[in-house]
Structures are given as C-alpha cells and as structure tokens.
C-alpha cells in the first residue's frame, strides 16, 4: 500500500452506495435571475440559463474532466453537486443519493477544491484543517497525527504548519486546500480549476498528487477546468460544456478523432464552433 493510501484511510461509502454510479445527472437545469441591463425598470430581472438539461454519468473510481470557458457553467455544476445550489429541473444523484433531497448523505461523501483556496487567513494551516475535519466527525485524536502526515504528503513543509495562511504563497495555500479535501476521505472529489493561477512547479505538484490519490485510493473525481492539458493528462473522459450545454463526453482520443483534431484544443474549438476571439467577446459581454 502506498503512502497516500495509508493517509486516506476510511472510505465512507457503504456497499449499497458503491453499487451505484458515483454521479448520475439527468436533465439537470439551473437558471439565475439577472438584471436586464437596458430595461426601463431597474429591478426587472430575467431568467438566464446556467445549465441546460445536463445528462451524464460518472462511474466509481473514474476521473472526468469538464472543459469550458469562464461562464460556461462549470462552477454551477460543482456547486449543485456540493449541495450549495438548488436546481430548477432534472435530477442529480451521488452514489444513489438525491443531491437535493438527501443533502446530508451527499455531503458525507463529497469534498472539493476550488480555484480560491479559501481559509481563515489569520489562522494556521493546522488550525484550519483541524476545525474543518471536526465538521466531518473527525476527533482531535484522529487529526493529531493525520494532519501533519497529509500536509507532508502534499508537499507542505511541516515546520510551517503553525504559520498563518496569509503568510503562505498561493501554491502553498492550494496544497493545504487539497489536504483539507482529502483529510475527510471523500469518495467523490470535486475539483474546480484547482491549479488555476499556480506557478508551473506548484501546478505539476498538485497534478501529481491528484494522480497519486487516484492510483492509491478509489476516489471518483470530477475536474472542471479550462486547462486542456490538465484535462488530457488527468481524466479518463473529457466533456465540453459550452454556455450551459454538455456537447460531448468521451475519452480525449475519441474526442480528437470525432472532430478530426490533432490536439484537444482544436477539438474544443471545433466542438463549440467558436474561436478564441468570440469566447473573449462573449465573456466581456457576460453572455457566456
């Protein structure tokens, strides 16, 4: 058993839960109300779809990457599966549990790492991990040894674990965020642009650790990213989310073949039928 497996000890899914798909999304819809910019009535809002009839499954132990530009709906999907949003239609199940009907059961199985590390900045990494682990039912006795171990495993210097988070670099903070997610032994890990803004070395370290976790532990991963290389390197299947619609979800090689592309980047733009310039223009206008 590898060192990673020895740190992440307890799988919390029951045999019944493990028999189901890790994620089962059918016709999922989400809309947000936005102000109409040119309306005579400043408080008038109109519904803007963020996700349109999303349907896909993720098998247990699989890593699926969802590619999409800013505003494509990636974070909305992660926040729906994290029980932080209510849907407007369709369904989503995590290991057989209805995300919107049984949020308590889902929360026990899920953790996430997002683009912002998000910690109490005056508190140390050890303090942040300690209280967060309590929310998942881990006692002080359990975390006393596991926190130093898991921090060391993600490449965090042990002698800095009592320093406040604000004194750490962004890369270091993101490693602590990974440690926080893994400390609670999730069976579904939601990664929302976990390496965005990291320097190349930190990015590689985080990606290596994600691969190690997958290799040593039967964790299912949903990786939302706009980093095409990251998706290709880490994921079994790659999906393309464009303005709330899942255009395709298949292995990266199949995806390239489907669009006659030599790279995932070419396949992405062939799938969306849009150029970089159009994506940027839409992002500026808030349309995407």
């Amino acid at each position: 058993m590898s060192r990673t497996a020895s740190i992440i000890t307890s799988i919390t899914a029951t045999p019944d839960e493990e028999a189901r798909p890790a994620v089962d999304v059918v016709g999922l819809r989400k809309e947000f109300l936005r102000r109409e910019p040119k309306s005579r009535w400043p408080h008038r809002k109109k519904p803007v779809p963020a996700l349109k009839n999303l349907t896909f499954q993720i098998d247990q132990g699989e890593c699926v990457a969802i590619l999409g530009q800013n505003g494509s709906g990636k974070s909305t999907l992660v926040r729906l599966l994290s029980t932080l949003l209510l849907h407007d239609g369709g369904s989503a199940r995590v290991f057989g549990h209805d995300v919107f009907g049984e949020p308590a059961a889902v929360r026990r199985l899920v953790n996430r790492v997002s683009v912002e590390a998000s910690f109490f900045k005056k508190m140390s990494s050890a303090e942040n991990l300690s209280y967060a682990a309590r929310f998942y039912g881990l006692t002080a006795g359990q975390t006393r040894s596991r926190i130093p171990e898991i921090l060391e495993k993600v490449g965090f210097p042990p002698d800095r674990r009592n320093e406040s988070m604000e004194s750490l670099s962004r890369g270091m903070q993101q490693k602590v965020a990974l440690a926080r997610a893994l400390l609670t032994s999730p069976v579904l890990l939601l990664l929302d642009e976990p390496t965005t803004g990291l320097d190349p070395r930190s990015k590689l370290e985080v990606q290596t650790f994600i691969r190690e976790v997958r290799g040593a532990h039967d964790v299912t991963i949903l990786l939302c990213t706009h980093d095409l290389d990251e998706a290709e390197v880490l994921a079994d299947r790659v999906g393309i989310l464009d303005r709330g619609e899942l255009l395709v979800l298949e292995p990266a090689d199949d995806l390239k073949r489907r669009y006659g592309a030599s790279t995932l980047e070419e396949a992405f733009f062939a799938a969306t039928g849009r150029t970089f310039e159009q994506e940027e223009a839409d992002a500026k206008e808030g349309l995407s």
Binding site: R79, S82, T83, L84, A104, R107, R108, V110, R112, S114, E116, A117, S118, F119, F120, K121, A132, F135, Y136, G137, R180
Partner: peptide, 14 residues
C-alpha cells in the same frame, strides 16, 4: 469575507 462559506455550508454538519 474569508471565502470559507461554501466549505462550511457543504460540510455534513446539520
């Protein structure tokens, strides 16, 4: 303010 709200509210604590 700190950005931890999503992590706290998705934790399995009633």
């Amino acid at each position: 303010w700190e950005g931890t709200i999503e992590y706290t509210f998705m934790a399995p604590l009633s």
